[in-house]
Write a protein that binds this DNA or RNA. Sequence first.
DNA 1: GAGGTGACGACCC
DNA 2: TGGGTCGCCACCT
Length: 110
Amino acid sequence: MPDYGFFDNVYDVARQIPPGRVTSYGAIAHYLGTKGSSRIVGYAMQAAGTAHPPVPAHRVVNRQGLLTAKFHFGGDTMQRLLEAEGVKVKDDQVQDFKTIFWDPSIELAL
DNA sequence: GAGGTGACGACCC
DNA sequence: TGGGTCGCCACCT
C-alpha cells in the first residue's frame, strides 16, 4: 500500500468538499488534529495540482475567505471555478464566506 | 541526518 | 481596527 502521509490525508478531506462550498486550511488541519500544521495544508495544496486524482484546491481558501491560492492557479482561474459552482467572489474574497463555509470537523464529525 | 521552505493562523502592539 | 511578527509541522533538497 502507498505511504499515506499528511498530504494524502489533506487531499482526502479536500475531495469531500461539496460543490458550492469552501473551507479553510486551518479547518482541514484542525480536522486532522494538527491545527498548528495549517501551513502544511497549504503546502499540500501546492502539490494538489500534481496529485492524483486531482484535488479541488480552488475550494480551499484562507481563514479570511481570501483567494490566496489564486496567485498559484494563475489568473482568475480559481475565481472562475468558484463562481461556476455558485460561489460569489468579489475582490478575491468569498462572499458569505461563513454561510458557505464547510467545516470537515463538523460535516465529517459524524 | 540536517537545514530550508511554505497556497496559514494566532498573538502582540 | 489594522499591520507586523512569531510559531508551527510535514515535505523536499
